[in-house]
Structure formats: C-alpha cells, structure tokens
Design a protein around this nucleic acid. Structure first.
Length: 825
RNA sequence: GCGAGAGUGGUGAAAUUGGUAGACACGCCAGAUUUAGGAUCUGGUGCCCAUUCGAGGCGUAAGGGUUCGAGUCCCUUCUCUCGCACCA
C-alpha cells in the first residue's frame, strides 16, 4: 500500500481534542432550572449491542447525525441531553460462554471497553458520565422493578402457550424473533430451526394496550412506513361476534367476522382443528377422518402450516350449525387455515365474498351464494337468487356494494347493513360488536442465563413477587451455560440459588423463577435511565424526567421498527399510568438512518468480503473524514453504497480546509464577494443542519472553501464563522484551527454564526430569457429590477430577437430575479 | 395479494411556493508541476448532431393531461426496494 502524503495531521489532532473534551468534560450536562423548557432537548441514539466484532460503519452514521445536531443545538443556546450506553444482555455472549466457558460478563465487559474506545475515537459529544449498561445490577434492578409493577397491574402472567422453541439454543423465542424461511420457521438470530411446543411462559399483556398503541401513533413525528408497520402489526379489525347454534344440540359456535352484512351468504362454517367444540360436533361416522386430519394439522404446526397453505385442506365433521339469520342448516368443517389464536378460532364461511372461503368452497364443492352486488357491474335488483350474478363472475367479491338475497336487508349499502344486522343480532342475543387484533401478548421469558432474572419465587403453586427491597435479584455464578435440557434455563442447575424461602413471611422453602427476561427488556426504558443514571431510589427522579422527556429526536436503524419501538412504547405507557413518567409517548420524533451497503451495492457481510471497518478508515483518513463522508454520501434516511474514492474526495476537502487555514489571518475586511458567499453559506448550513440535510450543508461548505482557496488571503471575519459552521461536522480539525487562529478552546462552546439576509442575496442576478418556454438567452440585471425594465432588456438580446423575429408577442411573463418568458405566435 | 416508499448523467446525488435540470463529490479526458504518486493545481465532462463560431435538437422510468412554463401538480402504466402475508 502506498504511503499517503497528507499535510493534514489528523493523527495527532484527533486524540488531542478527544482528550481535551474528556478532561474538561466539555459535554457534561446538568439540569439547569433557568433554561426554559423549549431550550431543553433530548437527542438519543439507539444504543448498541456490544458485539465482539466491534463497531461497523452503520453505527457512526446515526451517531454522527445526532452528534452534529446536538453540537449545532448547543451552539444555538440549547441544553442538550445526549447520552450513550450499551444494550449488554444478549445471546452472543452466552453462546460464546457455551463454547469457551468464559463468563458472559467478562466477554461483554471487554466488548464494551472496546466499543467505548471506538466510539470515543469518533469524537462524539456524549455526556459519558451518564453511560449505562443493561447488564449491570444497578441498572437491571430497575428493569426488575418495572417487571414487578407489571405483575402488580396484572400485566405479567404465566400461561401454558404453544411457543416457538429452538432446540439448538434450548430456548423459547417470541413470535417476532421467528422468521419464515424456505426451510421452514427459523430463529431470526442464528438461523436455527424452531418448532411449536406448549410450555408455561411468562407473558406480558401488551394486548391490553393495543388501542392506545395504535392511537398514539397519530401524534408522533415518525416515518410513515414505521407507523404503517406498527399499525399492521397491531392489526386492529372491527366487526362482530356472531353465535351459531349447533343443530340438534345445546352447544353454540361463536365466530368473529368483519362482514356481518354477508351473514345470509354463510353457507358453511370452518373451525380450527384445535377448536374445543370439534369433538362435540363430530359425528361418529366422520370421527376417524376428523381425528386423522387433526393429528396431521397439529404436526404441521411444527412445520409451515402457513407455507403449505396454498392449497387449502379440511374435512367435514358431520355436524351442522344453524345460520341465525335464515335458520339454514350449514355444514361444519375443520380446516387448518383457521387459526385458533385469532378471533374465536372459528369462522362463518361466506364463499361469495371472501377469497379464502371461495377457494375452499370450490375445492370441496360447497354452495356459494351471492349476497352483495357490485353496483358498478350489475343492477342489484336483478341479481338471480338461485345462481351467481355478474359480480361473482370472476371469483369472490370482497368489496363493498349493495346487499342482495339478504331478506329485509336487501337493497341497502354494505356499510349500513353491517350496523343494522349487528343491532338485529344484539336484540336477539345472537351477536355483538367486536374488535380483534393481530397483536398477541408478548412472550416474555427466555430459558437463558445472560438476562435479567425474573424476580419472583414459586412457593408451591403460588407465584410470589420478590419484595422491592430484595432487588436486584442478581445472577448467580454457574458451572455451565448449557440450558438444563428440560426447557429450563441454566439457572435451574444452581440449587443454591434456586432454593430459597418464600418471601411471604412464612419462611417455607420455595424455588426461584429460573427464566430470564428477553433482550428487549433492558432497552425498553434505557432512555429514562440516562436521565438519572445513578439514582438508587427509583428508575429516574420524576423531576428530572419532567425536565427532559420526551425524547425529541431518536435516531436508529429501521430493523427496530416493530419490536423495540413497540415494546418501549408499551412500557412507557404503563409507566405513565402509574405516574413514573410525564408523557404518554417516549419518542416524539424518530428518524431511521438508511443502511450503508458495501461498494458492490450489496449488504455488507463477512462472507461477501465487502465489509468496511471504521477503524481502518479512521487510521487512513481520520475520524473527521469518516464522519463527514458518511453524512455526505446522501440523505440520512436513504440506503447508500460505500465508495472508497468518495471518502478520498471528502478527505481532500478537509486537506484543503487545512491548507487554507495555514495562511496568515488578515484582520482587514474581506472582499465583498467572499463576505456574501459566507453569508449564503451560513444560511444554507443553518437551514440544512436544522433539518438534518447534512449532505447539502457539506456541499455548501465545499463551495465556500473552493472559493476561499482561490483567494490569496484569508480574513478572520470570514474564517472564524466558517470554522464554527464546520465544528459540528468535523469537530477535531475545527477545534485545532480555531485554536491556531488564536482563540481559546472550545469551539463547541461558541455561538452559532448568524447571517445577514441582504448579504445572502447578490446585487446582480442572472435573468434567463425564454421564448415559448425555451431558454434563448441570459443577461444580468440588478436585483429587484422592475418588470418592464427586465422585459425590455430581454428583448434586446440578439438571439432572443432572432426568435421573436416575424412573430407577435402574445404575452410576456416576468418572474422577478428569475426569468422573462415571451409567448409568441 | 395488501401496506409503505422510490425511479434524475458513467456513479453518489442537488434542485424554495411549478420558474435556466444535473449544485457538490466521485469517475473520466486534457494540461501544469513532479524522480515518482490514489499528492497538488488548471480546464473540460448529460446525450445527439455541428464539431471553427451554437442562431440546433433531445433529455428527470413510460404515456397522457393542466400551465406561458412541469423533475415538481393530476391521471394511466411499468419497474425496483422494504414490510406483512390464509388474522376471517
């Protein structure tokens, strides 16, 4: 590799200023009551999991963005809370322990040390006195405390549920941690096969907050896509529960439907194979078929019940139900496309107006009846009652229309029928309005070692929460990190820890809960701990929470769109309800930084060999270059590929800044043109920094430096404001040049430069001249020259004359300071 | 299929309320300086013609519309990315 001949000694400048900031605690922030609320800002990064691989180039992207913004705000007189910490519980450290026997704490803390060092090398303006790590007992004491609150509120409970179990990891995973792959369901982390298994688990009743989680989204300044994903995940749907009596029986089957208006078209029912009434409705002659199907379906849950769903399957139970609106006897089937854990686990099938039911009915030759007509395709009054109308000529019609073949509801619009039919059912106690959610309760326990122990004790069959004064319940040392093999965590093997006495005062022997919390737990509330990181009386003091919350800007990757951001919102709302926090939502504004791809435009990965290591970049070009380059690549939110020559270009800019800065500073007035350019630059950089459009701000600074570079002299009156603009972006070189200009550090404490509007506008402007909308010439005119004058001037241009020659001017449009357009015939 | 977003030079990208498309940077070409250079400096660079002078044509995924004027507004179509995916 060739030696770089840089004249710009970033190798010595950067450590110098990092040390300065650290020693002087330049970025420490304390709550100052004299700062008015609108001048207090909380700027937060998603804290990292300290992996063994160290920082990747994606980390500095978001971190640089918030750093620039924070520095910019400080220079504008804001008090900025800008902390950093580590999400330090998690599976990789435990897997490593499994292989090597190294305590996860040792691995984790070594990784944190390395991460912190790497992050500091980028010169971010964090208040490091507020650093927290979720694995520290002083932190997870309060994670456990919040769990106890959830338990008290009935929001944490135990239940035997079919859960995703991963034999390779010996643990249970949340639905959200399981992904569908061509090989079947797999763990999101590690890509291990997983299977369904009923196990007793801790659950959090997030569904109780479904509506509030949904409604809360409206007031948030978040990307639409993230809000849409959360709405979709919550999956609220309104409809009705309807009761179908089972024929010749006292039993009844309840179904959930979003289309009560199609009730007259329900020609059969389908229940999930696991439905408790299957046995009851099945007739003896159908029993063996039903049993066999059920068996198969239950096995299939281990595989992809959803993936095999392309071809619908099911069997007839032999039983019949009665359609409550028309007393029709309709057959009851079971089919695995009906999920037990949504709605009531049974449906009324309306094949005419539901594609899935249509498919099923076609396959098993079940009757299809049309009960809605599409007025755009046919006249509702002429729909035949015995056969299907035009609306159903190419399959089910699931849209809204006008009811037909529906007794006295016929002729009315879908929307109205929905309402009226539910009222009709309600009067007869055959149904009621109902709401369902796709959102399920959150499976909260993990059979792992490296997580927060769940602070409860099992006294016989009773679950007794640990008293608060016994928190934190710390992790014991263990011999082995292997799961117990019984579906229990490694903690189950530590008798001395598991066996305890019941905290109810009876002193009876009892056993500790051996499950631990998922990694999401610690990250659900870390933003609150940053506010008061050393408080040993409560998670954070309420007055400090009042001072800072909510988070004004939260920046991180879109991969946390649903999980982390939904869980954190849930906890926050609970904390709001019990008075711990002052706001209903934690993160007012969210920005997702786009992923940085490899030079080949592909996702960076070791196997592709396209990984860029930030350490190498800093080594070769310096932290300021890395920061500036990542911001210059393109809009923050956008995905963008790395470019090695692109970073060299940005480095060239800083080199040039440095070389310009070597000139002797003149205290005389700068040329008018330079002063004007400075003011334009201040304006552009101010606006773009405030709106996080860092790429265009940088490009304006480049324009300025390119111009200064052409000059012989350097004037203090333009140089110092420029350095202050550069400061948030490339803080090390800015500090150094600021000092070299004879100023006392730190530039970070300087005020942001202001511009004079009149100086951002040139006295002379270029006016484009168009004939019929095509540019035919250009001339200079004084700013704000009057319209008639501009039109006259424009018409004098030779080329314009040629195009006007022999034609009549029908209209002349003059846009002041911009253009003149002659419309000719 | 549903939901969200995006299509602009060889590349990353700019472009107030509709007002000179391509700022800035990379790459490339030519030149200067240099023992050398992924150094530095100067000039050029959307495409097609002409190439000596621009009084030229075409250009923002495709087609249509509104307008004196459209990357920007409206309609239709296509492509791509991301998310969800039998949720009744």
């Amino acid at each position: 590799m060739m030696r770089r001949m840089s004249k710009y000694p970033f190798q010595s400048i950067e450590p110098k200023w990092q040390q300065y900031w650290e020693e002087k605690k330049t970025f420490r922030v304390t709550e100052d009551p004299s700062v008015p609320p609108e001048k207090r800002v909380y700027v937060l990064d998603m804290f990292p999991y300290p992996s063994a691989a160290g920082l990747h180039v994606g980390h500095p992207e978001g971190y640089t963005a918030t750093d620039i913004y924070s520095r910019y705000l400080r220079m504008n007189g804001y008090l900025v809370l800008h902390p950093m910490g580590f999400d330090s519980f998690g599976l990789p450290a435990e897997n490593y322990a499994l292989q090597t026997g190294t305590h996860p704490r040792d691995t984790t803390e070594a990784n944190i040390t390395y991460f912190r060092k790497q992050i500091k090398r980028l010169g971010f303006s964090y208040d490091w006195d507020r650093e927290v790590s979720t694995h520290e007992p002083s932190y997870y004491k309060w994670t456990q405390w919040i769990f106890l609150k959830l338990y008290e509120l009935g929001l944490a409970y135990m239940e035997e549920v079919p859960v995703w179990y991963c034999p390779d990891m010996g643990t249970v995973l949340a639905n959200e941690e399981v992904i569908t792959t061509p090989e079947g369901p797999r763990s999101e982390r590690g890509n291990y096969p997983v299977e369904r298994k009923p196990l007793r688990q801790w659950m959090l009743r997030i569904t109780a907050y479904a509506d509030r989680l949904l409604e809360g989204l409206d007031q948030l300044d978040w990307p639409e896509s993230i809000k849409a994903m959360q709405r979709n995940w919550i999956g609220r749907s309104e409809g009705a529960d309807v009761v179908f009596p089972v024929a010749d029986s006292q039993e009844q089957i309840e179904v959930f439907t979003t289309r009560p208006d199609t009730l007259f078209g329900a020609t059969y029912m389908v229940m999930a194979p696991e439905h408790p009434l299957v046995d009851t409705v099945t007739t003896s002659d159908r029993r063996s078929d039903v049993e066999a199907y059920r068996e198969k379906a239950l096995q299939k849950t281990d595989l992809e019940r959803t993936d095999l769903a392309k071809d619908k399957t099911g069997v007839f139970t032999g039983g019949y139900a009665v359609n409550p609106v028309n007393d029709a006897r309709i057959p009851i089937w079971i089919g695995d496309y009906i999920l037990m854990n949504y709605g009531t686990g049974a449906i009324m099938a309306v094949p005419g107006h539901d594609e899935r039911d249509w498919e099923f009915a076609e396959k098993f030759e079940l009757p299809i009846v049309q009960v809605v007509a599409d007025p755009e395709r046919e006249d509702p009054d002429r729909v035949p009652s015995g056969s299907l109308g035009k609306t159903l000529s190419d399959g089910a019609f699931a849209g809204d229309g006008v009811s037909v073949n529906s007794g006295h509801f016929s002729g009315k619009r879908t929307e109205d029928v929905k309402k009226e039919i539910v009222e009709w059912l309600q009067e007869r106690e055959l149904g009621r309005p109902a709401v369902n959610y796709k959102l399920r309760d959150w499976i909260f326990s993990r059979q792992r070692y490296w997580g927060e122990p769940i602070p409860v004790v099992h006294c016989g069959d009773a679950v007794v929460p640990l008293p608060e004064d016994q928190l934190p319940l710390t992790l014991p040392e263990v011999e082995t990190y292997k799961p117990a093999g019984t579906g229990e965590s490694p903690l189950a093997t530590v008798d001395s820890w598991v066996n305890t006495t019941c905290p109810d005062g009876s002193g009876k022997p009892a056993k500790r809960e051996t499950n631990t919390m998922p990694q999401w737990a610690g990250s659900c509330w870390y933003y609150l701990r940053f506010i008061d990181p050393h408080n040993d009386q409560e998670p954070a003091a309420r007055d400090k929470i009042d001072y800072w919350m909510p988070v004004d800007l939260y920046v991180g990757g879109a991969e946390h769109a649903v999980l982390h951001l939904l869980y954190a919102r849930f906890w926050h709302k609970v904390l709001y309800d019990i008075g711990v926090v002052n706001t209903d939502e934690p993160f007012q504004r969210l920005v997702n930084q786009g992923m940085i791809l490899g030079e080949d435009g592909m996702r960076m990965s070791k196997s592709r060999g396209n990984v860029i290591n930030p350490d190498d970049v800093i080594q070769e070009y310096g932290a300021d270059t890395l920061r500036l380059y990542e911001m210059f690549m393109g809009p923050l939110e956008q995905e963008k590929p790395w470019s090695t020559s692109g970073i060299a270009g940005v480095h060239r800019f800083l080199d040039r800044v440095w070389r310009v800065g070597r000139r002797k500073l003149e205290n005389s007035q700068a040329p008018d043109q330079i002063r004007r350019l400075l003011h334009k630059t201040i304006k552009k950089v101010t606006e773009d920094t405030g709106t996080l459009n860092f790429n265009t701000a940088i490009s304006q600074m480049m324009v300025f430096i390119n111009e200064l570079h052409k000059q012989e002299e350097l004037h203090r009156e333009v140089w110092e404001p420029f350095l202050r603009l550069l400061g948030p972006y490339a803080p090390h070189i800015a500090e150094e040049l600021w000092q070299q200009a004879g100023n006392a550090p730190s530039i970070a404490n300087q005020s942001w430069p202001t511009y004079v509007q009149s100086l951002t506008e040139d006295e002379e402007v270029a006016i484009a001249v168009q004939v019929n909308g095509k540019v035919r010439g250009e001339f200079n005119a004084p700013r704000d020259a009057d319209k008639d004058h501009l039109a006259e001037e424009a018409a004098r241009i030779d080329n314009v004359k040629r195009h006007l020659d022999g034609k009549t001017i029908a209209r002349t449009i003059v846009v002041p300071n911009k253009l003149v357009n002659f419309v000719v015939k």
